[in-house]
């Protein structure tokens, strides 16, 4: 990643954190989860964030996901400085600019495949009238054409994660944030999911993925390693 000042006009920058810190109070002591991290994401980036537990990678992902606000520093996303937004605006920013893929899929049990994919749309203003068609199209795209009306409990882990990926695409987000997307899957299924993410990245999607598996991280274009709340290294895998 290059510094913000040396930015070239293209590709388009979609998100940027500048010198963010996050301090938690734990048992009367301040714990610095992030000690000053600056990153920039451009359209079409595929970034893997690595690090041991306690390195601050989950904290960074929560900040990037607008689920949390930095103690200091700036986070620019879709023209907003996220650090200054209210809780309601944060929700709107999440719904508009971000897509989430979780380790444990996090589908809603009482909803069918298509309905799960539609969930982010129900929080968009204005409501899209073609939500169901779009969701059906995405379900087909991730290879679940025959299972549109299945419940999550009727699907395998890999299939559930495909639903989650389709759900992350439905609002056409600037960035897809994936938190250990293959953590609960066997190797074969992991490869399928990573291939799907590759395909998405090749069509111009920006993906930021947290993982602790080097094999998975290798498939990203850029690997950032965190340590003690700071960026330890930034490696480019492919040109």
């Amino acid at each position: 990643m290059s510094k913000a000042e040396e930015e070239v006009p293209e590709p388009v920058r979609v998100a940027m954190v500048r010198d963010v810190t996050k301090v938690y109070r734990l048992g009367g002591q301040d714990v610095k989860a992030l000690a000053g991290v600056s990153l920039e994401f451009k359209q079409g980036d595929f970034v893997a964030i690595m690090g041991t537990s306690g390195s601050g990678k989950s904290t960074l992902l929560n900040l990037l996901g607008c689920l949390d606000r930095p103690t200091s520093g700036q986070y620019l996303l879709g023209g907003h400085d996220v650090a200054t937004l209210s809780d309601e605006d944060l929700s709107r920013v999440r719904g508009r600019y971000l897509g989430f893929v979780f380790q444990s899929y996090n589908l809603i049990q009482q909803l069918s495949v298509v309905e799960n994919i539609m969930v982010p749309l129900s929080y968009q203003i204005p409501v899209r009238p073609d939500g169901r068609e779009l969701s059906t199209k995405l379900a087909t795209l991730v290879g679940l054409a025959g299972r549109l009306d299945h419940r999550p409990s009727q699907l395998s882990g890999g299939q559930q994660q495909r639903v989650a990926i389709a759900r992350a695409l439905v609002n056409n987000p600037h960035v897809i944030l994936a938190d250990e997307p293959t953590g609960n899957l066997d190797t074969a299924t992991s490869n399928e999911i990573m291939e799907l993410l590759d395909v998405l990245n090749n069509t111009g999607r920006t993906i930021v993925m947290v993982t602790h598996e080097p094999d998975i991280a290798k498939r990203a274009k850029t690997v950032i390693t965190l340590r003690d709340g700071l960026i330890q290294s930034v490696e480019q895998n492919r040109s």
Binding site: G65, L67, D87, E88, S91, R92, R94, G95, R96, F100, N106, L107, I108, Q109, V119, P120, Y123, Q124, R167, N171
Partner: peptide, 16 residues
């Protein structure tokens, strides 16, 4: 609780 967390992450406000 989990469902609430998912919905919040996917853009639901407190009001929703």
């Amino acid at each position: 609780t989990r469902e609430i967390g998912i919905r919040r992450a996917l853009g639901a406000t407190k009001g929703e």
